[in-house]
Amino acid sequence: MKYSKSIKHSLLFALFLCATFKMSSQELNALVIVNSDQVQSSNKQLYDNLQASISDYINNTKWTDKNYKPQERINCAITLTILEQPSTNDFKGNISIIATRPVYNSTYQSPILNYKDNNLSFNYTEFQNLIYNENSFQSNLVSILTFYVYTVLGIDADSFELNGGEEYHKQAEKVINLAQQGGFSGWNRIDGNNTRYQLNENILSPTYKDFRTALYKYHLDGLDIMSEDKKTAKSNISDAVLLLNNIYNTRPNAFLLRVFMDTKSDEIVDIFSDGPRINAVKLKETLLKIYPSYNEKWDQIKI
């Protein structure tokens, strides 16, 4: 589905303004939480300082050469849950990332990534400056944060332009290559499934190209025209999701299918359980097939 001329012109004008006027705002508006409830520690202030340092690093670093208006910053929530503190400066746990994207002509924020990484392990000294060096590995914490920042930037850009996030996913790949020097898990092919390595490798792989195509069509051809034509928008969203069937047919257990469904399942159900009806039989059948873990959700889709 193509935009009407008026919407095209509005979007082009907005993009022109973004490219023309220099803004001081950074790209991300991140809420950072460090949860240490499960760790018995006498120095709770350390975790407060860690949270402040991470927030400052993510929100006050200029990650791209693009200029963002304050309202254009990507909203995200990053939660580090510390499960172990083996020694004074060593920490283990998990990190969750939730990022959203605004929908055209709406106040709605659509989730573009809802992901939990259970392989969080890092060293941190209180009041340590978090600085990323593009030429050498220095900190696993900084590498993990930087990797997910570029991944969020990449997925966000992919939702506005077909493969528009390529440069950011390539930056994330560079982070991986450097982090492999640190000896921490999650950065190498041999580290197993559902790792940072696998996430980035899959996103960049031609084998899974329909993942990024689906992101683009789902948002730009679907959600972004919802205010103009709900039935057409829903039809386009259905077509976008059906593209994932191509991945399933070659890789039934593809990691990116889980990433997409963990992020979009609730939204898909909301879209297709209310409002104007379209023929969603094929959509529901495909969802039941490719991601049966959410069958209770898919049953709510009205066909």
Rank of each mutant, 00 (worst) to 15 (best):
I7K: 00
L11C: 06
F16G: 15
K22D: 04
S24N: 11
Q26H: 11
N35R: 03
S36W: 08
Q38M: 13
K44S: 15
L50Y: 01
D56H: 07
K62E: 03
C76N: 09
K92H: 05
Y104K: 07
S106I: 00
Y115C: 03
K116P: 09
D117I: 07
N119K: 11
N123A: 14
N129I: 09
N129C: 04
Y132S: 12
N133M: 06
N135E: 12
L141Y: 10
F147M: 06
Y148S: 09
A157L: 03
D158G: 09
F160W: 05
N163E: 04
E167Q: 14
Y168P: 10
L178P: 11
N200H: 00
E201Y: 03
N202Q: 12
S205Q: 02
K209S: 15
R212G: 06
R212Y: 03
L223G: 01
D224Y: 02
I225R: 00
K234E: 01
S235R: 05
I237S: 12
L244T: 09
N245H: 10
A254G: 13
L256W: 08
L256F: 11
N279D: 15
A280S: 13
A280M: 09
V281D: 05
V281G: 13
S293F: 14
S293K: 15
Q300N: 12
I303Q: 12
